[in-house]
């Protein structure tokens, strides 16, 4: 049983996002900040007629908030009934990753540990497989 993953670049690293949760990839135009919210939330943006929450993935990894520019790329995913945009640097391709490709010996680096549980080798390089749920837990997941 293989699954399809979208390969994206996030804070300079290569990650895989399970494509079954992905709805689309969009350029975010207008981001409305949310005051006094968890810093991992970059803000709200409108996609067609819906309001989506933009997740600052860079913050989750580095603890530094990203300056969101007009036209920034976001992967639209549905997590626990809510729709989010995950900020990414760029996207590559959708590839299928078989269980056999999971690299048991290589674990993600410490700052990634909360977001990705494992790595896989795709076309000769390593990608981290993101755990979408952990992306929308806010800072708490960093502390854990």
């Amino acid at each position: 049983m293989d699954s399809l993953y979208l390969i994206a670049h996030l804070n300079g690293a290569c990650v895989g996002i399970d494509s079954s949760a992905i709805e689309s990839i969009v350029h975010v135009q207008d981001v409305v900040p949310v005051p006094r919210c968890d810093p991992s939330i970059a803000g709200l943006f409108a996609l067609r007629s819906r309001v989506l929450t933009l997740v600052d993935t860079q913050y989750l990894v580095t603890g530094i908030r990203k300056q969101v520019e007009k036209g920034a790329l976001a992967v639209v995913v549905e997590i626990a009934g809510h729709q989010y945009g995950l900020l990414v640097d760029r996207v590559e391709d959708v590839v299928s990753i078989l269980p056999g490709q999971i690299e048991d010996r290589v674990k993600p680096a410490a700052e990634w540990a909360a977001l990705a549980k494992c790595t896989a080798s795709v076309d000769g390089r390593l990608v981290m497989l993101l755990d979408p749920e952990s992306l929308v837990q806010g800072q708490i997941s960093l502390a854990a």
């Binding site: 949310v34 939330i41 309001v51 806010g138």
Partner: peptide
């Protein structure tokens, strides 16, 4: 989203 609602300041979002 739950993270936004957990601030307790907002009742929801609107477009």
């Amino acid at each position: 989203a739950p993270l936004i609602m957990s601030t307790g300041l907002f009742a929801g979002t609107s477009l």
